[in-house]
């Protein structure tokens, strides 16, 4: 009986062994790529794509755009200053110099709104870092390879950002809707919101620094269920990004703050 099954197995192996090996190899390779979030593929992609990447001179344009953005943030910070009486530690930290990164690829599948940036672990980018573009906030780094990093855009339906209105300080969560706009759901039953209000990241957000410009309210729907809603048009044009700036992620209050500050400094000292 045993001999028979061994014989059967040997016959099967002679006929299908190589195929089975091939299938096993292909499957484990695919699992590896899945586990590493395509790191190797994106690194090779970045090398191939670098000759066609956006013109480096636009880095200068980006810096002038950054000055404009900082002016806008200054106004918002002054507002916070009046409210709180002092600048928060977080806001000071976020003033550090960013890492500039070109956009080298778009979403690999259309159910997700992502972009791939041409800077990775080697350049000091970390998971959870914040990405902005001329105008305002763009999204958050969700995975990093040696030379590239992947950004989950604000416009993705699974992205949720704590936001606040510049004028009335009404707060809520913003979710992506399409490339141009997102929807805020307010915490208040009757929020003070009107068309044209400026939207910033809120101090309640643990993922983002407070006070980044996000967009502008273009429509208000107070009778929406379960919470009043407003539609926001993003400041940064997410569909035609070319260069972005990466800032270290804010320290999460409960994690040891000193340690993570150090690691952020290390990441930035290379630039």
């Amino acid at each position: 009986m045993k001999g028979n099954s061994v014989y059967l197995f040997r016959r099967w192996w002679e006929r299908h062994g190589l195929q089975a090996l091939g299938v096993g190899l292909a499957l484990s390779l695919a699992l590896l790529v899945r586990q590493t979030q395509g790191g190797l593929v994106f690194d090779i992609y970045q090398r191939l794509a670098s000759p066609f990447a956006a013109d480096p001179t636009s880095q200068e344009e980006l810096e002038t755009a950054r000055v404009r953005e900082l002016e806008q943030r200054l106004a918002e910070l002054e507002h916070q200053y009046q409210l709180v009486g002092k600048l928060s530690e977080e806001a000071k930290k976020s003033q550090k110099n960013p890492i500039f990164a070109p956009v080298v690829g778009r979403s690999a599948h259309h159910w997700w709104q992502q972009v791939t940036l041409g800077r990775g672990r080697r350049d000091g980018v970390k998971e959870g870092d914040i990405v902005t573009a001329p105008g305002g906030l763009v999204g958050r780094i969700t995975s990093v390879s040696d030379r590239t990093s992947r950004v989950l855009l604000l416009s993705d339906p699974t992205s949720r950002v704590g936001v606040t209105l510049g004028r009335s300080r009404a707060m809520g969560f913003m979710r992506g809707e399409n490339e141009k706009q997102g929807t805020i759901e307010f915490f208040d039953k009757v929020p003070d919101v009107k068309k044209g209000d400026r939207v910033f990241t809120s101090s309640f957000s643990q993922l983002f620094h407070p006070g980044y410009p996000v967009g502008e309210v273009v429509a208000v729907k107070l009778d929406a269920s379960p919470a009043p809603q407003a539609t926001v048009k993003f400041d940064a044009s997410l569909s035609s990004l070319e260069w972005t700036s990466i800032y270290p992620q804010p320290n999460i209050p409960h994690a040891e703050p000193e340690f993570s500050t150090e690691s952020n400094d290390e990441g930035l000292s290379e630039h």
């Binding site: 299938v23 292909a26 499957l27 390779l29 695919a30 699992l31 790529v33 899945r34 586990q35 590493t36 979030q37 395509g38 593929v41 979403s107 690999a108 599948h109 159910w111 997700w112 992502q114 969700t142």
Partner: peptide, 21 residues
């Protein structure tokens, strides 16, 4: 089916693994 499984896992790696492709 095998080709679908392998390429689906690859696509998971290239975008996002939840839910799977």
């Amino acid at each position: 089916a095998i080709a679908g499984l392998v390429l689906g896992l690859l696509q998971d790696g290239m975008s996002s693994p939840h839910p799977t492709h």
